[in-house]
Nucleic acid binder design. Structure first.
Lengths: 333, 333
DNA sequence: TTGTAGGCGTTATCAG
DNA sequence: CTGATAACGCCTACAA
């Protein structure tokens, strides 16, 4: 690859001049500018960003560590982040932590040695303490989809309790009184918050909380099926189920279909997250929308602001929204 | 951030020695090694990869440009690529081209100036000629999911014709003779190839090709609905539909459901790609599996080989596979 | 085994 | 407006 020196030689000017035209410094004569441009063009010159970064101490890139590069959750988020970053001449370096502590650490190490201008963290495995310590060392770290009180001004997170409340309230409004809940793993704060929202709605409606109606499931693949099966095996009646996420809700769909039943007939089901495929299910799923893209956009903007030395006073809490589709209906009988 | 100099000062050795312990050079006395390690630790030292890359002319990172960072297609691919790369100490820098020529060029420019060790291209907008020219300049570019004859040894692609054949053959084997096809945009080579596979199967079975039964659709979102609607409005009979991808097949699902019909009852439908959500649909979709992850793995390995100077003699063609689920059945009557 | 010193490709300061 | 030249942080002969 051509270097600045080759360009300057070819153009018959100094390296400094080449550098100047690259960086849009206007103190260059028109004639020289043209000569330089021509030379660059001829050589297919691309500045070496390592050298640039070394000299300027700026990398013009921000790093993100997500759970996985695939999946309906992180994808849209990275997408929106990249869009706004790119508009400002920044680039995104994406790494994944696979919800594994060592890998998360490794990813962060990588981004640090890459001297990214900022780091976006969407991590599960790493504990609050470690997070806090890192943030103290590095003022350009932001935490997504997670709330850490000590890091309040660098967190962008969802009001999960409200989501759980909305889902439950929806069923209550439809007339349901026997409402079950299949939660995500309760080690996760968000699962606990969603459950709390469920309790709040129940409470508000004067419905007593019944532990028999609550089962803990997994967010992944068929964690939903297992948990749903468990619920149906218990000897309790219910006409609606509030789920920890869409995957779990799909598990309920599956269990119902074993009896040739469909959601909303005898049992209403409400998901959570509104993954893009939820609308492809039949019946279309009633769910809680999680503004993933918006979270990404906001995060990216916070980064940009921080980089231009605007003081960040507080984090951002996003509101979930109820999306009513076809999997919920008034109880029969 | 601490530099190598600070570490060497603190450890009371030269920078060279610090560099040696970093790079696992064993010609360092145990005592000095320990001193250095302690110093690094104390300072939270992270080598500056810009400086390293500048000095070694190696970045230990490979770049990829995909259509979008989100979506069920690119995600799994990046995921598998990152996995194998990471195992070898390489990192993935992901950028997106949004199927837009300027953005694709920009992404490539970025990766070039990042001096990535190799570039993986999954691009749509860029023409063959431009691709060829780039590959000539840079021997470390690979083309995924696309076949360019002149670049045969750096392409990893799918046997699309076979896929179209398998889908159609499946319906024929079930007893169907009136089989429609909703293709992707025929400007795309893969859509044309899939269509050709359809023709081949028909031909082999002695069924005459009927242009009335073929309609061109879009791969995205509701491109399927529109094309399906068009097909159903034509005055032709058919009992099976072979689709250009799963999205299009979902369009057929939707159209059928308007009449309260379900796939496999009167009309069988076969998708293409086996997106992960296809199994969540009811009835579960019969489709052609596209080994996306495998494509990623292979690509990553090619990169690795090329980096260790193994000569690449040929590209790789992957075989699609028929996945029979519930949306196809023998024709009734 | 260790240290010295030159070089990697840019930027930026400072004279001209 | 232009050109030397000293950083930037690290690696790597070469010498000791």
């Amino acid at each position: 690859m051509a270097t600045i020196k080759e360009v300057s030689d070819l153009a018959g000017v100094s390296q400094a001049t080449v550098s100047r035209v690259m960086n849009g410094n206007n103190k260059v004569s028109e004639i020289n500018r043209e000569r330089v441009m021509a030379a660059m063009d001829k050589l297919g010159y691309q500045p070496n960003s390592f050298a640039q970064a070394l000299a300027t101490n700026r990398s013009y890139s921000v790093g993100i560590v997500v759970g996985t590069l695939s999946g309906p959750f992180y994808g849209p988020m990275m997408h929106s982040i990249e869009s706004v970053l790119r508009n400002e001449g920044q680039h995104l370096i994406a790494t994944s932590g696979h919800d594994d502590l060592e890998q998360e650490r490794d990813a962060i190490r990588f981004l640090n040695s890459r001297r990214v201008d900022a780091i976006l963290l969407v991590v599960q495995a790493m504990g609050d303490d470690e997070l806090i310590e890192m943030c103290q060392r590095n003022p350009n770290i932001f935490v997504l989809n997670r709330y850490v009180p000590e890091l309040a001004n660098r967190c962008i997170y969802l009001n999960n309790e409200l989501g759980g409340y909305l889902a439950t309230k929806h069923l209550i409004d439809l007339g349901h009184t026997k409402i079950a809940s299949i939660t995500g793993p309760l080690v996760h704060l968000d699962a606990r918050e969603r459950l709390q929202g469920y309790r709040n709605a129940l409470n508000e409606a004067g419905i007593e909380y019944d532990a028999q109606l609550v089962v803990e499931g997994l967010y992944q693949e068929d964690g939903g099926n297992k948990a749903a099966a468990k619920l149906f095996q218990r000897d309790v009646e219910f006409t609606g189920v509030v789920c920890g996420n869409d995957n779990i809700a799909i598990g309920v769909y599956d269990i119902l279909s074993l009896d040739n039943e469909s959601p909303a007939e005898r049992i209403s089901v409400v998901g959570y997250d509104d993954m893009f495929y939820s609308r492809y299910l039949r019946p279309k799923m009633t769910t809680i929308r999680f503004p993933i893209e918006e979270m990404g956009t906001i995060a990216a903007n916070m980064v940009l602001q921080n980089l231009s030395n605007v003081d960040l006073v507080k984090g951002v809490q996003l509101e979930p929204q109820l999306i009513v589709r076809e999997s919920s209906a008034p109880p029969v009988g």
